[in-house]
Amino acid sequence: MIVGYYPGCSLTGTGKEYDMSLRKVLSLLDVQVEEINDWCCCGATSAHATNHLLSVALPARNLMLAQKQNLNELLAPCAACYNRLIGSKHEISHNADLKKKVEFVLEEDFNSSTEVINIVQLLQKVGKEKIKSLVKVSLKDIKVACYYGCLLVRPNAVTKFDDAENPTSMEDIISATGALTVEWNYKTECCGGAHSIARKDIVTFLSKNILDDAKLNGAHVIVVACPMCHSNLDMRQRAIKKLYPSHEEIPVLYLSELIGIALGLNGKELGINLHFVDAINLLQMVKAEM
């Protein structure tokens, strides 16, 4: 299976362990990734919050690059990139006036037949059975809280992916590793996203609620599919601990890292040592190596 790959900016920096782990896991699952040549940033929150045309044109350029590489499917592992790519495509195809403006900006006709998919959708295509057949380390002793955040599922009319209020597709994939998944209340609550720098107080408040609910429901680990969610939930536990000294840390892993552990990769290969919250105890619970 060959799939187009749009890593996005975070996966080359703050979320580089997501890229590391994903590439290794996909190669074990016989998925070949073909990166888009000279892709540019999707504009993320800052573009759509301040300049609508720009926020559609930047993803449109990347979609056109994918089109030129004849990619049928394009994986955007970052939930924010996924949302911007699929959202722009949707808007352009439903608004002829906007399409004209985008074509004026890009100086070429826009057409995109590439299907934009997120990481859960790719793993669904790979299939639970395939993952199961390759499991080397059973995760049966750990309980996982699957965190979807905002941008994998919303708006549902655009993503057409899972249920916007109570998604369950990540739980279904994870069941292939033997891990148990917990029922909890905050799987689609916002972590504060791009407020991480300008309004850290908002992010620490929202993230603390998410972390607490996961722990309250018995989770040993939170699994995410977004580098922005990851840095808010993992790195910001430092700031949370300062504000609430009784806060007990809980590790936060990317979906690709959790699956990587089950497929027998060690913590370093997956970049788990790059997190702020230590996951050594978690790895010991399943007798995996750091």
């Binding site: 900016c9 080359t12 920096g13 703050t14 979320g15 580089k16 000279d38 892709w39 540019c40 940033c41 300049n51 609508h52 045309l53 720009l54 044109a57 930047l58 350029r61 403006k101 004026f104 900006v105 890009l106 100086e107 790059l274």
Partner: peptide, 26 residues
């Protein structure tokens, strides 16, 4: 996790053009 140097795209012109032509938004 913080790159000392920027990761530049090879060809900066298309992105600069998108910015220039999108100014003024809608």
């Amino acid at each position: 996790k913080l790159n000392i140097l920027p990761h530049n795209v090879k060809d900066k012109k298309p992105v600069k053009k998108i910015f220039a032509k999108s100014k003024g938004g809608r």
